[in-house]
């Protein structure tokens, strides 16, 4: 496993070595004629006003919270899926119960994300 990880890191490092020139070459050969409008951020031709990093409604925040729960659940299911022969039918019913328990908060999330009047 150690050498596998090293090989994956080498592949990523080669990708970095191959794409850094792609950023450096334009710095050297491309023309530079900066003007003021060019260096503004883009807002459909308007002169931008105010901060770009504004505060936004996180109306789908409930989904992000569900992701935290379900990501852990999916990893747990991977562990169960690999040892399915050893845990047998009893383990299967436990997992069905576990998924059923998680579907209750999922239904609650879907209900709350659908309530547009509270945003």
């Amino acid at each position: 496993m150690g050498s596998d990880l090293l090989l994956i890191l080498f592949t990523a490092a080669f990708a970095a070595a191959a794409s850094v020139p792609m950023i450096i070459i334009p710095l050297i050969i491309s023309p530079k004629k900066p003007t003021k409008p060019k260096e503004m951020q883009y807002e459909c031709g308007q002169i931008p006003s105010g901060a770009g990093k504004m505060s936004l409604m996180m109306q789908y925040y409930a989904y992000l919270l569900m992701f935290v729960a379900f990501d852990v659940m999916s990893m747990f299911l991977f562990a169960w899926g690999l040892s399915i022969q050893t845990v047998g039918l009893n383990g299967f019913f436990v997992v069905v119960l576990f998924i059923g328990l998680l579907l209750v908060p999922l239904g609650f999330t879907l209900y709350h994300a659908g309530r547009r009047e509270i945003w």
Partner: peptide
């Protein structure tokens, strides 16, 4: 490669350049 590189003044340069690199990596 031969286009002018227009980087807006207000960007956070380090992460602005790093993001495309990281995506490829």
């Amino acid at each position: 490669l031969s286009k002018e590189l227009v980087i807006p003044k207000v960007v956070d340069r380090f992460f602005y350049i790093l993001a495309p690199l990281l995506t490829v990596i």
